[in-house]
Amino acid sequence: MNTPLDEKTIRTLRAGDIVYLNGVIFTMRDKAHSKALELYRKGGTLPVSIQNGVIYHCGPVVRKIGDKWEIISCGPTTSYRMEEYESELITEYNIRMIIGKGGMGERTVEALSKIGAVYASFTGGAGVLAAQKIVEVENVHWLELGIPEALWVLKVKDFGPLIITIDSHKNNIYSRIRSEAFRKLRDLT
């Protein structure tokens, strides 16, 4: 799939689909989420437009060679930490895809469905594999938040495999597997 993504295409995706991305993605963790929403409330603008964009929950390992940044390792971080911000970010900035690991809560599931967006999982810990799919660091903003927390603008090719784990129709693989696991545990013990 190519970025920017549109609502119509996103609505065709179903939980369980496996996709690969070409284009631009933005890394955002706790602090970048909080800062983006604070700016929105104050009527400010972000240093880069994330409208209809793809947000990647990731804090990379980087190296600077001359004035060029190189991404060394960049797997996903635990998405649940962003739960308190995500629904607002999706709604206010029309985010089309969130990439992370571990899944997200009910508020995010609702926002994904309302806006027409999906949550996709990249294999946790596969940081070197992810870095191989980064063609270029287009830019970095908010470095004062620290390297992991900064907003990295990454140009990617064949970024994946991404498993669609929460689609725009409220199908959530994580919560399904989790309730089945609790049911099995009750039967087993």
């Binding site: 990731c58 390992v61 060394i72 390792s73 797997g75 971080t77 596969a126 940081g127 070197v128 870095a131």
Partner: peptide, 17 residues
């Protein structure tokens, strides 16, 4: 794949070191 790449390219297996 990631384990193999990390070893060959001499890069940290996971970005969370």
């Amino acid at each position: 794949n990631n384990i193999q790449l990390a070893k060959t390219l001499r890069r940290p297996i996971c970005q969370d070191t």
